[in-house]
Design a protein around this nucleic acid. Structure first.
Length: 424
RNA sequence: GGAGGGGUGGCAGAGCGGUCGAAUGCGCCGGUCUUGAAAACCGGAGGGCCUCCGGGCCCCGUGGGUUCGAAUCCCACCCCCUCCGCCA
């Protein structure tokens, strides 16, 4: 949700920001609605003040045994106008809130301007894409040839965009997830959380998935929503709370399934398990003060990068441009891993600083130690990492000529010491 | 699913038609005392909007209603808790 004062004070900056996101200007409508609403509020309040004064006199006159009929008549005469102004204020307020709820977060000035993903800026890269003596296969070829990755059966059970993993591959997925979670907890100070996977509508509103991205979500018959990412329950852990500054930064992580309708991506990445309705992800969420959030963003990104480094998976860090960055984010760094089979860099993590945008929607505040009152916290989220995609990257990167897969060193303890998945 | 109870300030919790934005306790902030702290004592403190800067209005889960007047009465909805039933 937006700070109206900020839009009122810098309408042209707001519209310029929206333009950078490829959106139409909105400040004029916001300011107009806000002006009308406040005018209605003032009118309502003035009438209300008169009625309150009258009511007080009626009470006093009654207890003094005086005749109050003329006062009652005066009060009655105000009733219509009061009702009208009150209704008007409500209507305008609702319209304003509805509009505001669909406007994305202010971008950080540092966000590069660009229309689409093509204009994202590569900040740094790590590792050398491995070379193969043969044409590297894509993960689904490797998995299907091993007989450990079954899309046909998954389709029978659940339809497109699902997969059944078996044997060593199922275990490899679990190993990757465990490894990541352990790393973030032990080395980066995140507290492990096991959150609900079904949440209330207002929780999705809090992190910004609703009302705008309704069609990307799954809803249950009783009106709950399947989480599209653990960012949702983890960030909302602080909703409607006032934290002590000493509790910050608050760092939490969770390994959860994520559920996405993928409504807008028909035909994209249909082969394999790159884009599924259900996938595992280790999520990182930090709650900080405004002063800390930028440094925390960097720290979080590095925490995600560590996973790829330990797995020996080459990646690059990308600064998302204004046309590609998400609704709730002020700034986002994506981690893109190299997939030899596909011969492409693919997103495997997305680390965003949402500043106070989600905090306002959730009403999440903290009490500063050195000043009065409360301030909104800053919220950040990042994948640390997407497990399904990491599995893909491991399979494609460590594939062997014989169709098997070498197990990266750091995963072997989680695989019962297994060094490679061999065909046959 | 059935039966009850309840949603009030940072927290706990009173208030149940006007003098209530709201007692009290805890917590918090400032002061006195103290070498310092604790204790004790004194004082202070919610948010939003408007303002002719005097002040005014709104906010007691949400929305409607009754009334001259609602935290207080009525209705609907949402949420939480307890007990029973069912169940991993």
């Amino acid at each position: 949700m937006h700070d109206l004062k900020r839009i009122r004070e810098a309408p042209e900056a707001f519209d310029a920001m929206l333009a950078r996101r490829g959106l139409a200007p909105a400040s004029a409508r916001v300011i107009e609605l806000d002006r009308l609403r406040r005018a209605a509020q003032t009118a309502f309040q003035e009438l209300q003040a008169r009625r309150n004064a009258l009511s007080k006199r009626i009470g006093a006159a009654r207890s003094a045994g005086e005749d109050v009929s003329h006062l009652l008549a005066d009060s009655a005469a105000l009733a219509d106008a009061i009702a009208r102004e009150e209704a008007e204020e409500k209507r305008l307020g609702l319209e304003l809130d509805t509009l505001l709820a669909t406007l994305p977060n202010w971008l950080d000035d540092a966000v590069p301007t660009g229309a689409s993903a093509e204009e994202n800026v590569v900040l740094r890269a790590w590792g050398e894409p491995s070379r193969f003596d043969w044409t590297p296969r894509q993960h689904f070829e490797i998995g299907e040839r091993l007989g450990l990755m079954d899309f046909e059966t998954a389709a029978k059970l659940s339809g497109a965009r699902f997969v059944v993993l078996k044997g060593a591959l199922a275990r490899l997925e679990r190993a990757i997830a465990q490894f990541m979670l352990d790393l973030q907890v032990r080395e980066h100070g995140y507290t492990e959380v096991s959150p609900p996977l079904l949440v209330r509508e207002e929780v999705l509103f809090g992190t910004g998935q609703l009302p705008k991205f309704r069609e990307d979500q799954f809803v249950t018959t009783d009106g709950r929503w399947l989480i599209p990412t653990a960012e949702v329950p983890l960030t909302n852990l602080v909703r409607e709370r006032i934290l002590a500054e000493s509790e910050l930064p608050l760092r939490v992580t969770a390994l959860t399934p994520c559920f996405r309708a993928e409504a807008g991506s028909a035909g994209r990445d249909v082969r394999g398990m790159l884009r599924q309705h259900q996938f595992l992800k280790v999520e990182l969420v930090s709650i900080t003060t405004p002063e800390q959030s930028e440094a925390e963003h960097e720290r979080m990104t590095r925490s995600a990068e560590t996973v790829l480094q330990r797995l020996g998976l080459p990646y690059r860090v990308v600064d998302l441009c204004s046309g590609d960055i998400g609704f709730s984010a002020a700034r986002t760094f994506d981690l893109e891993v190299w997939l030899p089979g596909q011969g492409a860099w693919r997103e495997i993590s997305s680390c965003s600083n949402c500043r106070d945008f989600q905090a306002r929607r959730m009403d999440a505040r903290y009490r500063p130690t050195d000043s009065k009152g409360t301030r909104f916290v800053h919220t950040l989220n990042g994948s640390g990492l997407a497990v399904g995609r990491t599995l893909i990257a491991v399979m494609e990167t460590y594939q062997r000529a014989d169709g098997g897969i070498d197990i990266p060193e750091v995963l072997r303890p989680y695989m019962g010491g297994l060094e490679a998945i061999r065909p046959g």
